[in-house]
Design a protein around this nucleic acid. Structure first.
Length: 314
DNA sequence: ATGTCCACTGGAAGTGGA
């Protein structure tokens, strides 16, 4: 299963780009952010025609999230992050697909900082951390995917210099992200590329795409069960290079949904193999001992012969 | 501070958000 997150930056104006990407990469599950469209403006028919079922939570002009599933209908399990009934932003939607629980989130940008928007970002983050803990405790295989609007470390940006005052790099933002991970989530892209810079966003300014001046802010967090299923991860960079592109590129993981069952089998096979090897080792050792014994006997025989020869010489 | 793009309002170009 290929599961992707993509900040589409306006689903109506990017619909051709979205459909082209779905056609070429055929992701099985897609988390979309920044629809920038009300519920009624979601292009349901076109997405269905492309072979995807969808659920969405829109909003006029800003925010908006959706989950698509190829040849399937996502089963909605939640819309809206718990913890603040007065929060009107459409930033969280969650569904079950193929036995996985998938949370699609669009974390507040938080600029300018400091200020009420940054406060809202941190408050939203705290709500996410609290809810993520509940998801972990649920025992389900869970993925939390989306635009986190956090550059986790200075390694996740081309050069932090001009972004030092930006909400995406603030120590408070990073501390929240680190605290979330510490609950037991795997940052899929960072685990897949431990020593490489990976970017998912290049803003429209100053030819940042052309210069590969990017940031890594779109993340797929996997709980333990799902992390064990991960086989690959990456970024569909070509999407960012297309005309009229979103400023983000689709970011994805490939999961082996059979991995758990297979792992159990593999472990059994390994145990048998280990036993066989052990038997072989013992056999090899025994043979070696015999050879040594034979050699020793030979040496002894030679020695005996020599002694016998000396004796007769004397 | 700047840079670019989207969507909305209102019926053009300005504004807010990112």
């Amino acid at each position: 299963m290929k599961l992707a997150t993509f900040n589409i930056n306006g689903i109506r104006s990017r619909l051709p780009a979205l459909l082209a990407w779905l056609e070429r990469e055929a992701p099985d599950v897609v988390c979309l952010q920044e629809l920038k469209a009300p519920d009624a403006g979601f292009p349901e028919a076109e997405i269905n025609r492309a072979g995807y079922g969808a659920i969405w939570h829109g909003q006029t002009s800003w925010n908006g999230v959706a989950i698509l599933a190829k040849d399937a209908q996502p089963v909605e399990t939640r819309r809206g992050l718990p913890g603040d009934p007065d929060d009107t932003h459409s930033r969280y939607i969650e569904a079950a697909v193929e036995g996985l629980l998938i949370g699609c989130l669009y974390l507040p940008n938080g600029n300018p900082q400091p200020g009420p928007k940054f406060d809202y970002k941190l408050a939203w983050f705290e709500r996410l951390i609290a809810y993520a803990k509940k998801l972990l405790d649920s025992g389900h295989p869970v993925v939390l995917a989306g635009d986190y609007n956090v550059v986790p470390t200075d390694f996740d940006i081309y050069n932090p210099r001009s972004w030092l005052k930006d909400a995406l790099l603030q120590p408070e933002s990073r501390e929240c992200y680190a605290r979330l991970l510490k609950q037991g989530w795997t940052d899929a892209l960072r685990v897949r590329f431990p020593d490489e810079q990976v970017f998912t966003f290049w803003d429209y300014f100053r030819q940042h795409w052309q210069r590969n001046s990017g940031l890594r802010i779109d993340h797929l967090l996997l709980n333990g069960q799902v992390a064990a299923m991960m086989r690959d991860a990456g970024v569909d960079r070509w999407v960012r290079g297309e005309p009229h592109a979103s400023d983000h590129a689709p970011t994805w993981v490939v999961l082996d949904l059979e991995a758990r069952a297979v792992n159990v089998k593999k472990t059994a096979v390994k145990k048998t193999a280990v036993k066989k090897t052990a038997v072989k080792k013992t056999a090899v050792k025994k043979t070696a001992v015999k050879k040594t014994a034979v050699k020793k006997t030979a040496v002894k025989k030679t020695a005996v012969k020599k002694t016998a020869a000396r004796r007769s010489a004397a």
